[in-house]
Amino acid sequence: MKRFVTYTLLFMLLAGSTLGVGEYIVRNMPNSYSYKHRWMLDNASQLEYLILGSSHTYYGFLPSAFFDNSFNLANVSQNPEYDLLLLKKYLPLCKRLHTVVIPVSYFTFFDKPFEQGSEWHFAINYKLYMGVDKHSNLSKYNFEISNRPVYSGKLLSFLKGKELPMCDTLGFGVGYTIDDKASTWKYDAQYIVKRHTAVNWDEFDGNLDNLRKVAQFCKENDLRLILVTTPTAESYYTLLDKAQLEKTYSAITGLCNDYSLNYYNYMTDIRFNDDDFHDGDHLSDIGAQKFTTILKEDFSKE
C-alpha cells in the first residue's frame, strides 16, 4: 500500500511540476489583456476617451483614428458587467478621462454571463492579467490550465516560438484583415445571427441592469457615456429577429432618457461596403478606420 501511494504521489508530483512550469510559461507570455493592463497603469493619467465593450469595438474602434488620448479597452465577449469592473478598477488612475464609449449590439441584452457558457475561460484573462477580483483565487478562473485547449494552444505557440494575438499600441484588435477573411463570410452570417438570437429573454433584465449600473457610475463620476451600435453587413442585419431588435432599441431609448445619454446607431449604415467587413457583424481593419473617422466627425458635430 505504502509503495503504491508513494509511487502515485511521485508520478503526480512529476506530472504536476511539468504542468506547473507550463502554467508559469503561459502566464508570462505577452497577451492583449496584460498589455492593456500595463498600458492603463502607465498611461491612464493622460487618458481622455476610453472605449469599452466586446469584439465589435475591439476590432471596430481604432483609437489612432479618433481624438488624441483615446484607448481601446474592449475585449472579445466583454459584456457590460466587465465594462463596469474595468471602469471601477482603472478610474482612480484616470485623472483626465471625460468620455466613455460602450457598444450596444443586437445580443448585448440577451447574452448569458460568459461564465455560464462555452466562453467561460475569458474570465481567466480578467482575473490573471487585469487583476479583476470577481472570482476567488481558488476558483478555476485563477489557473490557465483549467481551460486545457487554450492552455495547450498557448504552450504550443510558445514551443513553436509564436506570439499570441496582440492588439496595437492603443488596444485595437489587429488581425481582421482582408487576407484573413473567409470566402463564405456572407453565407456564414446566418449562423452568427442564429447564435446571437436569444432563445428566451431571461437575461434581459440582468443585462439591462448592468448597463444601467455603468450609466449610473459614469453619472456619479462626471463621465460622458456614449452608446454606439457598430455597422453590420446586410447579410447579417436583414436576418435579425425584429422583436429582439425592437426590445434592444426600446431599452436603449429608456437608458438614454433616464441618464441623458447620446446614442449613435450605424447598424445599417449604407456607407459601409463589403470590404469594410470581416464577417457579418465585425468590421475589418479598413472598416474600423472608416467607422472611427465617421464617429469622430459625428462627435465633433455635437
Binding site: 508520478f11 512529476l14 506530472a15 511539468t18 504542468l19 462555452s118 486545457r148 485547449p149 495547450s152
Partner: peptide, 16 residues
C-alpha cells in the same frame, strides 16, 4: 511512457 501519455492527454485534449 505514462508520463508522456499523461502530459500529451492534458496538452492535446480537445474541448471538454
Amino acid at each position: 511512457l505514462y508520463y508522456i501519455l499523461f502530459i500529451a492527454t492534458i496538452l492535446l485534449a480537445g474541448s471538454n
